[in-house]
């Protein structure tokens, strides 16, 4: 059953987001092309028609607004989907399915997680495409990738740290999603003021957690190495113990928020 619910969630979301991400990459491509054309590398710039300049300007605007739009639209689509599935019209169809609350929640969480990652990948890919085309003069694809790898290696980050760092980022993403879902669930309890309730719940729970974090940080270490996880996962320290603690905290946070969301949706849901 989980597989089926997940399948339909993905279908419902991908019909909006896939074209969006595809368009973003396309914009990056075109932008890169026009920019590299209009930048005077080998003196050819003089002969190009004005329209290329205009196109470049338009595409540059599209590119930068596009990056933001991708993030914003992804957020809006995922939140709206969750909201309408549990608290809106679609709830009548979805919640009539012979499926447990946990399956519903897990499917949405996984979907949101994957698409959030994909939006990040799209953003990175867009930038990469841009840089790649712009430096097309280099005409050396392998050289390009090698130079990136060299740059990363020069930071001298041990591979295990890298792994743990990525893991903590992923868990932060998950716990961020669970945080949003739990806030929406809490907000739904305040009948007539669901939206405000959700926002307040989000801020409130976030605040509580940040405070807890701060105390923990003070307890573990004198330095303020701990930042609120789902705002910025970039640590100052790459020590395994620190990373390990961050991972544990993110995991606990995720479980806590998920439980809250599940409890409310299962026991206290009153649909419209």
């Amino acid at each position: 059953m989980f597989g089926k619910v997940f399948k339909y969630e993905m279908k419902a979301v991908r019909r909006i987001l896939l074209p969006l991400y595809g368009a973003m990459i396309l914009v990056a491509l075109l932008f890169g092309l026009t920019t590299s054309m209009t930048t005077d590398f080998s003196g050819v710039g003089e002969g190009l028609p004005v329209i290329v300049d205009i196109a470049e300007i338009i595409l540059s605007m599209l590119f930068f607004t596009g990056l933001t739009a991708c993030g914003v639209i992804t957020f809006v689509v995922l939140i709206r989907r969750f909201y309408s599935d549990f608290l809106g019209s679609e709830g009548y169809l979805q919640l009539a399915l012979p499926v447990t609350t946990n399956v519903h929640l897990a499917a949405r969480t996984l979907t949101a997680f994957l698409w959030t990652l994909l939006s990040g990948v799209t953003a990175l890919l867009s930038l990469a495409v841009l840089v790649f085309i712009f430096s097309f003069e280099i005409q050396d694809l392998t050289g390009f990738f090698r130079s990136i790898l060299d740059a990363v290696r020069s930071l001298e980050i041990p591979p295990l740290s890298m792994l743990l760092l990525i893991l903590s980022l992923l868990l932060s993403c998950l716990s961020g999603i669970a945080h949003l879902y739990a806030s929406i669930a809490i907000g739904s309890l305040w009948s007539g003021h669901r939206m405000i309730g959700s926002v307040l719940a989000y801020i409130g729970t976030g605040f509580v957690w940040s405070t807890l974090n701060g105390f923990l940080g003070a307890a573990f270490d004198n330095s303020s190495d701990f930042l609120p996880f789902h705002i910025s996962g970039i640590p100052f320290s790459l020590e395994y113990s620190v990373l390990g603690a961050m991972i544990a905290l993110a995991l606990i946070q995720f479980i806590l928020y998920y439980l809250i969301a599940w409890l409310i949706l299962d026991k206290a849901l009153n649909l419209d």
Partner: peptide, 15 residues
């Protein structure tokens, strides 16, 4: 019980 019950709500609910 939801697997036993077929429900037609009083509103437009289809995806």
């Amino acid at each position: 019980t939801k697997s036993l019950v077929s429900y037609l709500p009083d509103r437009d609910i289809l995806e």
